[in-house]
């Protein structure tokens, strides 16, 4: 399976959000099949920790860390120019759950949640998309959320950010349909990570970061458009979307 076996030069992956548990798992899955890895993160020390782990476990010779703050949109062009090479695949896992109640009362917090989940990722992937088109190929994977499928009282600021991101990816996919640039939206459902460590998640609906990563790595062989990592989620969200608004607004979700 390894790309090295075919003697082609190794391909390269860019993970945006290299400190997240899902991002770490994705980078590990690609390093295991011989890819070069770049981790972009605002917290360099934490990203270095993941980079060392990946080098040690997978004998990976090319694991690089690059600073990036997803809220600093003016730095994006420079960030891309300074990469060693334009990656073959980019996976964006940046996101922020935030605190719903605080977001209702503190517009600064709400703006940060929305910008982190939507504005930053969308603008950066747009720039990558045009560079991919220029080169002729590329795979763009955006990690969004089922929370964006319908707004709920308990997390609608986060959900709205993700909904925007989902719509953006959908439009980008539509625009690039005739090219060799693929756009994939991933909706992981519940994932057991440090982001959700304090929550009581429903076992059968909860995936391990490694499961999400395996689905994302499998995209190299099996292209897709929208992925619900655990199949059950497709059904759950189908039902949730089908509930009439008059009923939905009275539910405690």
């Amino acid at each position: 399976m390894s790309d090295i076996d075919q003697q082609a030069p190794p391909k390269s992956l860019l993970v945006i959000g290299g400190t997240s548990d899902i991002g770490r798992a994705v980078a590990s899955a690609y390093a295991a099949i011989g890819w070069k890895i770049t981790l972009a993160a605002r917290n360099i020390e934490a990203a270095d920790r993941n980079a060392a782990d990946i080098r040690t476990r997978y004998e990976a010779a090319h694991v690089t860390v690059r600073p990036l703050d997803i809220l600093e949109t003016a730095t994006f062009a420079g960030f891309l120019d300074q990469l060693d090479e334009l990656p073959d695949t980019v996976v964006c896992v940046v996101g922020m759950l935030g605190d719903q109640t605080r977001a209702q009362n503190d517009p600064k917090h709400a703006a940060q949640v929305i910008r982190t989940n939507f504005e930053g990722p969308a603008l950066l992937l747009e720039m990558l998309a045009s560079r991919f088109v220029e080169r002729g190929h590329g795979l763009i994977v955006g990690v969004s959320s089922v929370a964006g499928d319908r707004g709920r009282a308990s997390n609608y600021v986060y959900g709205a950010g993700k909904a925007g991101f989902t719509a953006y990816l959908s439009g980008l996919r539509n625009r690039l349909a005739g090219t060799d640039v693929q756009v994939v939206t991933v909706k992981p459902g519940f994932v057991r990570t440090s982001m959700t460590a304090d929550m009581d998640l429903i076992g059968p609906l909860t995936a391990a970061p490694e499961t999400v990563a395996a689905r994302i790595a499998a995209l190299q062989m099996r292209p897709a458009n929208v992925i619900y990592v655990l199949r059950a989620w497709r059904l759950v969200m189908f039902i949730i979307r089908a509930i009439p608004e008059a009923v939905f607004k009275k539910l405690k979700l």
Partner: peptide, 18 residues
């Protein structure tokens, strides 16, 4: 158990830091 990163391995000496 969250301290789950490996740090470095030296194949010469066999020393693994985690």
């Amino acid at each position: 158990t969250g301290l789950n990163r490996m740090q470095a391995f030296d194949p010469e000496t066999g020393i693994l830091a985690t």
